Structures are given as C-alpha cells and as structure tokens.
Amino acid sequence: MRRILLFLGTNLAVLVLLSIVAHLFGVDVWAASRGYGGMGPLLIFAAVIGMGGSLISLALSKWMAKMTTGAQVIAQPSNDAERWLLDTVRRHAQAAGIGMPEVAVYDAPEMNAFATGASRNHALVAVSTGLLHGMDRDQVSAVLGHEIGHVANGDMVTLALIQGVLNTFVIFLARIVGRMVDSWLSGGRDDRGGGIGYFIIVIVLEIIFGLFASMIVMAFSRYREFRADAAGAKLAGRERMISALQRLGASYGESTLPKNMQAFGISGHLASGLKRLFMSHPPLAERIEALRRAG
C-alpha cells in the first residue's frame, strides 16, 4: 500500500515541479512551438521530464518511506522479536537470491507492511507495530515473504519504468492536444503555444490523461500483488500466506488511513465499476482463491 502511495505522490510532485521549472525557463514554450513542425524535440522534452520525474521518485523512495512513516531501521536488534525479524528477512532474502534489505518497524495500529528501494540489493522492508502485535510469527513470516517477493521481482523498478513511459506520453499528448485546443479557442491565431491559456489547458489535459495512465499503473499493481503472494507462499508456505491474508481480512475496518486512501490498503477493500480500475490491490478473497487454485 504505502510503497504505491509514496511512489505516486513523489512522482507527481517531481513531475509538477519539473513542468513548472521548464515553463519558467521557456523550455516548455520552445518544445510546444515545435508541436506540429517537428515532434522530435517535443518528444525528447516529454521523455526527459516524464522519465526524470519517475526515476527521481524511485531514487528517493527509501528516504521518503522512512520520513513519512517514521520507520526506525533495526541496526542492532535490542530484543528477541527484532532478532527474529532480522533472521526471517535474511532467510527469505537468501532464498530469493537478493541482498539483505534494511529492516524497519514503524508505529501504526493497522496490520501493514511495505517494501521499497531503487534496486533488488538495496531495498527496505518495513512492518507496522500493529502487524507484529496482531499476527503470529507464521503469518508475519508470510507477509515478509510477500514483501521480499516484491523486491525480488523488481516491482519498484518496473513500476518506475512504466510510470516514466506513461508520464512521457501524458506530457507529449497534453501539449499536442493543448496546442490544437488553444489554436481553436484563439480563432486560429498562432502564438506558438506560449500563452497562459495554453499552459492552463495543458495542465488540465495532463490531469485528465494522467487519470487514464493511473488505471494502467493500478492494473500492473494488482497483477504484481498476485505474484508477491505466490512468492510469499513459496518462501513461507502456502497455508501461512493464506492464513496471513485471512487475518488481514478479519481486521477490516481497523485502518487509520484517510478514506480517500483506503482503497490502496493492503487488505484490498471491495470495489466495483470504475472504482475497481483505481485499486492498487485485488480484493483479499481473490488473492486467497488464486493461492488455493495454484496449490
């Protein structure tokens, strides 16, 4: 849950900042003025801003995760629970063939966990105090295996690449369509895409196109949850992974997340219609059924 929100939030902030800086320095106007005659410069501009925002978000992901959750990395275990946590993550990481990630605990009442990082060998795995108190060790081991699965599958890097490509097309198409709309509204007058009206139109189009891009990102996120569940089942045991998901389902309603963020929770709240297109996690019932079918 948190890895998706942190990445998307950071990506959006960086993207907006880079767009504003490009506009202030005239780069945006220069690229837009070539929207018809030569799309190469515009596409290069869109790729630099789009991929740049995504890669910067990926590079900052561990730092942002620690800062926003208050996660405390376990450098030296101070008790048996922390020693068990480190040993379990180390065992799963070795089995998955990745480097030992940093292990952290953050204070939150809901049962939750996340993994993030710019590479498979320099990742962060964090669990909430609510998870440690609300699950037995077999279930926690399965959740840790699920998070190690995300790292081993390279999910954060893949997500960053997908988001970067989508950012590129959003920026590119917003300026092409924005130029056309601005020209139509101005009665065919060609100001080479530099007016304030054009800039406002582009921002609105980026939001609209960005919603469609988010649907693609969320579809990939749902797909990778099934893969991470399978990894958790392989590393910790299928019945333990199923038990962990069932325990999450039993805690429905305990999350302290704001309502506008609850659909992204690890518990995979039920949704239908258009809302389902923006869910980052499949419903728990579907994930459990997928594990049972695989078994």
Rank of each mutant, 00 (worst) to 15 (best):
M1W: 06
R2M: 13
R3G: 10
I4C: 03
F7Y: 15
G9C: 13
T10L: 06
L18I: 06
L24N: 01
V27L: 10
V27I: 08
A32V: 12
Y36T: 05
G37K: 03
P41E: 05
L43M: 02
I44Q: 05
A47N: 00
A47H: 00
G52H: 04
S54M: 06
L55R: 05
I56W: 01
L58A: 07
A59K: 03
K62C: 04
V73M: 11
Q76K: 13
P77G: 07
R83T: 08
L86H: 08
D87L: 01
A96V: 09
A104Y: 10
V105N: 15
Y106Q: 13
Y106S: 10
Y106D: 08
A108F: 11
A108I: 13
E110F: 15
F114A: 12
L124G: 11
V125I: 15
G130E: 15
L131E: 10
R137T: 07
R137N: 11
E147N: 10
I148Q: 05
N153V: 05
G154R: 12
I171K: 00
V177I: 15
R179S: 02
M180P: 06
M180H: 13
W184T: 07
W184F: 09
S186C: 02
G188K: 14
R189M: 15
D191L: 10
G193N: 02
I200T: 00
G210V: 02
S221V: 00
Y223P: 09
A228P: 13
A233H: 06
L235I: 03
L235Q: 03
A236G: 03
G237Q: 00
L245Q: 09
R247P: 05
G249T: 09
G253D: 14
G273R: 14
L274P: 08
R276C: 02
L277F: 15
F278K: 08
M279C: 13
S280E: 04
S280D: 09
L284H: 08
A285K: 10
E286V: 05
